[in-house]
Each structure stands twice: as structure tokens, then as C-alpha cells.
Simulated assay, not measured.
Amino acid sequence: MDWKEIRGNWVIVPQNPIGIIHFLGGAFVATAPHITYRWLLEQLASKGYVVIATPFVNTLDHTAIAKSVLLNFDRTLERLQDTATLRKLYLPIYGIGHSMGCKLHLLIGSRFQIERAGNILISFNNYAAREAIPLVEQFNSTFAIEFTPTPLETNKLVQEQYSIRRNLLIKFSNDTIDQSAALTKILQERFPEMVTAQTLPGTHTTPLGQDIKWQTGASFTPFDALGQWFKQEAYRDLNELKRIIFLWLNPLSPP
């Protein structure tokens, strides 16, 4: 896949695109999403989706980050629409977020006037700063350190102002920091019958899985068999995630 940096975003533009994905990753792996989420994003591009992955650095001001990543996305989309590839095409835009990236998509959909065909929110968490950042607990008694908006403010904002009607929430069965259940309830009350929740096998880091290039030797050995088994096990969860995402994006397309 041919990754390009366009106005600070990492972008793949497939031939004959059918949609656009704005991807936002987790707090400490979002600085290079084209590397940390490479396999998943390239799978999306292989199905015809333009991928615009916006890197960001985590700070306490999540509203400012949301505004910044949206501005970067819009600038890059404008540049792409000026090219022959996307000119005169109407393509649906979907947001996909992992972990903190979910919160940013929620803030974007609550605070700004945007057009989205839907959002996919994977492994959402909405912790307070003292729970999310090591050492904050030690200083919190002296300094008022907290994310903006706070977890409670975020929930209230989504409950009252979030404008993206169609949503897929994905949590993993072995994810101890996922907070999708509370968000699912809020969204299902706001948009009945438009919100889908799925629990898949895996962990909080499943979306970060990468391809393992396993080369067998001249003869197939027991060690090769072990390697193939490991690869199959490692990718079972990741491939199920991919299947569910594709099915939601386009229910009529083959997996």
C-alpha cells in the first residue's frame, strides 16, 4: 500500500474509492497511526476506502485535540478533492476511533457541524486523568489535573449534542479498561435502533495487530508448523474485527 503524508495526515487513496475513513488511534500510539495500525488500515484501503489517519499528541485538553484533528482532516480532504482522484465524487465519510480516538470522534460529533455516515467506536474508555495517566494521583492533591472535558462532562455532551446517528460500538472480551457499556446505553437512548454493540474475542490492543511474515524453509518442519499455528491464533481476533467492521460499513458486500 502506498502511504502518503498530506498536510500532516497519513493517507491511502485506493483506485475506485467507495468511501472515506477518518481514523483516530489511542492516546500513546496515535502519533504514527500508519505504523501502529498499519494492518487494519491497509485492509480498509484494500476494500476501497480512502484512509485519512490523523496523528495527535495527547494533552489534558481533549476539546482542543478534537478541534485540531478535525481541522487537519478537513484540510487533507480538501486537498484530495482538488485532485483528479476524488474530484466530483460524493463519498460517505465514516469515523473510526480506537480507545481515546473514540472520545475525540464523540467530541467532534458533539461540538462541530460535520457530515458523517456513521462512526465505529472501538474499545472506548473515558477515564479521569488520575486513572489514565501514571503519577497524576501523586500530584492531584496539590494541582487540579483533569481532562477537558471531564468524563461526566463528556457523557452529558454526548447525551445532549452528539449528532452522528449510526454507530457501531466494539468491545473485546478480555479488555479490562473498556467503558463501551455506559456509552452504548447513552447512544441507544439518543438514537434508538441506530446503534449496534458487539463484543468480540480479543484485548484492548487487538486493533494494533500486525502482519507476521512467516517464511518456511525448503522443507516444512515442526517449527514451521508451530509458527503457522501462532500466526493463525494471533490473527483470529484481528480478522474477526475486520469482518465485523466491513459488514457494518457495507452489509451487502462479500467479506
Rank of each mutant, 00 (worst) to 15 (best):
M1Y: 13
W3V: 14
I6A: 11
N9S: 13
W10G: 10
V11G: 08
V11A: 10
V13A: 06
P14M: 01
G19E: 00
I21Y: 08
F23Q: 05
L24Y: 07
G26M: 08
V29E: 12
P33V: 07
T36R: 12
R38G: 12
R38K: 15
Q43D: 11
L44T: 02
A45E: 03
G48F: 00
G48V: 01
V50R: 00
V51W: 03
I52Y: 04
A53V: 09
F56I: 00
F56L: 01
F56V: 03
L60W: 07
T63I: 01
S68N: 02
L70A: 02
D74Y: 09
T76G: 04
E78W: 09
R79Q: 13
R79P: 06
D82M: 14
D82I: 11
L86N: 00
K88F: 08
I93L: 10
I93F: 01
G95S: 06
I96P: 04
G101H: 00
C102E: 03
C102Q: 03
K103E: 05
L104C: 00
R116H: 05
R116L: 07
R116E: 01
G118F: 05
I120V: 06
I120P: 02
I122T: 07
I122N: 07
Y127P: 05
A128Y: 10
A129F: 06
R130W: 09
E131G: 08
I133F: 04
V136K: 07
Q138R: 11
F139M: 09
F139V: 06
F139Y: 09
E146T: 08
E146P: 04
P149A: 05
T150K: 03
P151M: 08
L152F: 12
E153T: 09
E153L: 12
T154R: 01
N155E: 15
K156R: 12
V158C: 04
Q159H: 11
Q161E: 06
Q161D: 05
S163M: 04
L168Q: 01
I170A: 02
K171R: 14
F172I: 09
T176E: 14
T176R: 13
D178A: 13
A182K: 13
L183F: 03
T184Y: 15
T184A: 15
K185T: 15
K185N: 15
I186D: 11
L187Q: 03
L187A: 06
P192A: 08
M194C: 15
V195D: 01
T196P: 05
T196N: 10
T196W: 08
A197R: 12
P201G: 08
H204E: 13
T205M: 15
T206Q: 09
P207G: 02
Q210F: 09
D211Y: 15
D211C: 13
T216G: 14
T216P: 10
G217C: 07
A218Q: 14
A218N: 15
S219L: 14
D224G: 08
G227F: 10
F230D: 15
K231L: 13
K231T: 13
K231M: 13
Q232W: 13
E233P: 07
E233N: 13
D237N: 14
L238N: 11
L241Y: 00
I245D: 00
F246S: 05
F246P: 02
F246K: 02
L249Y: 01
P251A: 02
